[in-house]
């Protein structure tokens, strides 16, 4: 049976394999900052497509945060 998404359902952000449930209705940029990541250090991918960080998070959606900083 298909699960009903309600406005209280969280969105999920995934960073290096770790899953974070975040509140919907806020921008992706704000959610990333709240998790303690710099928005400058990640790219957001939803359903295989890059999305900009002004996106308002929707109930139940999953967004991959791709870390872009490397160094050694």
């Amino acid at each position: 049976m298909r699960r009903m998404e309600t406005s209280s359902s969280p969105a999920t952000l995934i960073h290096r394999g770790k899953r974070f449930e975040v509140r919907c209705g806020t921008t992706l940029r704000d959610a990333v900052r709240k998790l303690g990541f710099s928005p400058e250090s990640v790219l957001a991918v939803r359903n295989g497509e890059l999305v900009t960080d002004d996106r308002i998070l929707q109930p139940g959606e999953e967004i991959q945060l791709v870390a872009v900083i490397s160094g050694g």
């Binding site: 250090s41 790219l43 991918v45 900083i69 490397s70 160094g71 050694g72």
Partner: peptide, 30 residues
């Protein structure tokens, strides 16, 4: 910007090594 090169590889479909060199942890560059 590094974010721009990463976006280019993702949008181009270039497969690259996502894992860091194991010795880069704690590097001054990061």
């Amino acid at each position: 910007y590094e974010r721009e090169t990463a976006a280019y590889t993702l949008m181009s479909g270039i497969d690259y090594i996502y894992e860091e060199c194991p010795y880069s942890e704690g590097s001054s560059t990061l």
